[in-house]
Design a protein around this nucleic acid. Structure first.
Lengths: 206, 206
DNA sequence: CCGAGAGTGGCAGTTACTGTCATATGGCAT
DNA sequence: ATGCCATATGACAGTAACTGCCACTCTCGG
């Protein structure tokens, strides 16, 4: 069956499947809207479900827990960052590449800057979300390590790259949080670059 | 009144206060027992309260949430580690001092080794605990940064020390987890030392 | 056009967590 | 020793997160 014709893959994916994706998207967006408006605790699952006009039971068919919404809200940024880092020219140092990749992923036009700020503020002020987000970053170390390994030597499963990924992940979180907290001129990448430079990991220059 | 006589401070602290501390301790211990026995999810607050013969409502007067039990179970190790690190001779490099402090804090006789292993396994297998624990470590960066600052220069609030503390904290978690997973010969400090060496933070040699 | 499978809604039930009030218990001054 | 006060505790009701179950509907393939 024509695997050649898949420009945006509407033929390969069913109509119902797209509806599912759409519902998931709507739920996440509605949740974000409500969270930004009245806060996490003041928003119930019933509220979110009602906003999309599905039953509360259906919500749980898309998201395992309420906390997991934070993953849905932030995962596109993570995907973008990993892709951007992978696409960075290999001759750049890791220090430069990571900072630039953050800017690439959070570039205005690609994502809404004020939206990102709201998101970071939400994480900062919501313990449940912060814990889930930090853990998500912790888990994503493996994926980041794989990308790093692809740029330098080539041991995706090695302890060294895993630790470096962890340190970078933490520095990114710290840097972006700093950027989001104060509304100054430089982009988020600059903050991350500074944070990584402070760490002074010699391996970043490889 | 006689502040001189305070061998174990029974005069300074009231009898009721000690009873409170004791109840808290009993709750944490009973919870740990049940968690190790049947797992986190299979243990209800009612079970824990019943084991200590207090009402479920009382449990919440000692611990804000069920997840927070992990903090109670692990906080003595954290305190011990921070104290041990502070007590390490200043001429040691950070790399050496941190590894040694981990061994000091987790030394047999001081704490039960198999107990620590159970604890790490519990964290590894319980998402709710893992998230809470990682976040706890994330929050404790500030305290670790202060201890580090006390050893080297002296900027407890500086971004550099905060980032280093974050990296070290992550490396400790990774190292201790590695140690707990496999029951090999070397102590946990050795694993942490290796992890930190892999990171190759030049600042660790300061 | 029809049958199978997946998506959905409703409902009942468990459990974490909270506010409130009455009761009990220990600490302290008299 | 006694009585008062603060604080700890227990009982109860209530909210909200989450889950299992069953019936219904809708979509897709034949």
């Amino acid at each position: 069956m024509d695997t050649l014709v898949k420009t945006t893959e509407p033929p390969s994916i069913g109509l119902a499947a797209r509806k599912k994706q759409r519902t998931r998207q709507l739920l996440a967006e509605a949740a974000a809207e409500l969270f930004y408006e009245r806060g996490y605790d003041a928003t119930t699952i019933d509220d979110i479900a009602a906003a999309v006009e599905v039953s509360p039971r259906t919500f749980y068919r898309y998201f395992p827990t309420k906390e997991d919404l934070v993953v849905a809200l932030g995962e596109t940024s993570i995907e973008s960052f990993l892709a951007a880092l992978g696409a960075r020219p290999p001759e750049e140092t890791l220090l430069t590449a990571v900072g630039a990749a953050v800017d690439d992923a959070l570039a205005p036009g690609w994502v809404d800057t004020s939206r990102v700020r709201s998101f970071m503020a939400l994480i900062r002020d919501t313990p449940a979300f912060r814990a889930r987000w930090v853990e998500e970053a912790y888990d994503n170390r493996h994926r980041l390590a794989a990308v790093i390994a692809g740029r330098t030597d080539g041991d995706p499963a090695g302890l060294r790259n895993l630790l470096i990924a962890g340190a970078i992940s933490m520095a990114i979180n710290t840097g972006v949080q700093c950027w989001a907290d104060q509304d100054t001129e430089p982009g988020p990448g600059e903050f991350v670059h500074r944070a990584l430079a402070e760490l002074a990991l010699p391996l970043l220059a490889a």
